[in-house]
Nucleic acid binder design. Sequence first.
DNA 1: ATACGATTTTTTTTT
DNA 2: AAAATCGTAT
Length: 681
Amino acid sequence: MKKYILHEPTGKVETHIDFKGNLNQQQYEVVTRAEGPCLVLAGAGSGKTRTLIYRLAYLLERGESPRSVLLMTFTNKAAREMRDRTEMLLKYTPKGLWSGTFHHVGNRCLRMFAREVGFERDFGILDQHDSLDLVKASMKKVSARAREERFPKPSVVQSIISLSVNTGRTIEDVLEDRFPYFARFTEDIQEVAKIYDSKKKSSGNMDYDDLLLKWKWLLENVPAARNRFSGQFRYIMVDEYQDTNFLQADIVDILAGRNGNLLVVGDDAQSIYSFRGARVENILNFPKRLKDVKIFRLETNYRSTPEILDLANHSLVHNKEQFRKELKAVNPSVDKPALVEVKDLYSQASFVAQRVLEMREEGVEMKDIAVLFRAHYQSAELQMELVKRGIPYVVRGGIRFFEQAHIKDVLSYMKILSNPVDEIAWIRALTMCPGIGPGYAERIYEHFRNTGRDLMPFIRSEDISRVVPKKAQQGYARFQKIMRALTDPAAGQAPGEIIEIIMEAGYQTHVLAAFDNAKDRIDDIHELVNFSHDYTSVNDFLNDITLRENFRGETVTGANDEDEQLVISTIHQAKGLEWDAVMVIGLCEGQFPHPKSMKEDREMEEERRLFYVAVTRARKFLYLLHPVTRFDYHMGTVVARRSRFLEELDAKDYEVWEVDSSSMFGGDDEDGGEEVIIDMD
DNA sequence: ATACGATTTTTTTTT
DNA sequence: AAAATCGTAT
């Protein structure tokens, strides 16, 4: 990750980049004059990333040290893209640049001042699933009540707690505002939140929210930390500012405090993360919140055809809450967007697959085509169809590599080893033994804590027969065997060796017994071993991977060449990306807009912005698919009306394609060797 | 009575 | 794929 460093700019460097020639007037203004607080309102496809990269290059060429620049992006992928493109532009690798997601940068800052916030330098990080496990464990005490009344599910409790942190409101306020029907449980939920918090602390872990909350606390309350960072970052740039929440906005304000060179870039029309506490107000009120804000607008769209842009703009007109919209297209016309009526989910899948193959014949590369949808489960039929036809694809935003059960299992053993009081890790490792469920796992862990013994003596000799019944003791033997192998003084210390020990001491046997695709999973674990070779310490290894994005997405069929894969993605994951052809599936009432967003106007407007984001990903070809029926778990197959987002459009915005349903059934039944196979060489 | 584990049901979006 | 439900073993 950090091998190739050529040279660093020192003092004045001769400019070899043609800033004026490579940018339009608006972009050039931003690049050369964005001193002080600046707001860039950048419409979809207006060259926002390009502008940021050139701004960064401009600063470096002017002699600014990379370490005094902080670049916060929404995803790690975006950060990597920025780094790569900056490198290409500069022809060297800037060393010491701070860039990444808020959580990433927060993590980095907190490690430097961990003691100040009451943690050790090597604190662990809980991902969503770990955090959910801990919420479940924290709900034990209210579980009696939970069974009798309609108490919120653990995942709901988790999101209530998280929302309270991310919006800066009390749990009481969050409940009243977003979950009024749970208001009577306010005290119980507060209690759970308290237990959850203390469990995090006693196990030496932070969750995602803590990375922001404690970061902000650190900056506000520890002058040494505040001065260190606000002094270092002379130039701060924030991408996707419309999706920051109040915590993130505060953090940025504090960091920028001293030097005031804060450049935020965003588009209020693309704000789609309010469920995570994001607030459009951050961008709308930015000019009011800070003094002497310069406002720039990027309004030329270089991405899409005029037809696609018209359709997008006409959709957005139906939102009341908006800033302004005046995106001009410069690209030539190609085809009108197509509204495709299909019979059901199967003909939808079949149409998409068919059209992908045809476009490929017409010269559109596979990697320049994407299929987008509202929710992940909508892609099930499509994935089956693609596999059947041998079309290679990659799923964005599926389960991440590091979040898969078998990977997390292995990691949990490593976590216990590295941090013996990690309650989540104990419970995870214990519950995969037969005869041990959450109840007994908790008891065993408590017993470990109560004995006050160290890990090694406990594992070697502690008798647990008084704590749990016989069946659980037999299961425990399995856990014990692995832990004994790991705590053997003769055992290896490198992360890779440790994983091998876990496998040999019994986890491999467990995988073979518990999963039907055991072979794939074992391969994954070997892949994890390979990955771990970059690390010498288990701690670094563990701390690094939780915040890491898809180290390998769910790559399915014949992935000889990454560039020859169709992209399948949720719209949320597609943010900031673009393709020649985009196909949006499942555009019917009951699916998109999502039924749960029907109650409130502001939620419906967010769904509409999501639709806007989806269509503006397309450069040339846009297909909007409307399955005329859908499957309702309660009523079976029901008629599904066109999504309101389609009905709202002007009929001139698209062409309607009626798909002949009889042709859709052709390839559906048997006739073995008939599938279309794409040659991969 | 308690907790495990197999079975059925239900499924938003993510750092 | 995860949560709720139900049956069964201790």
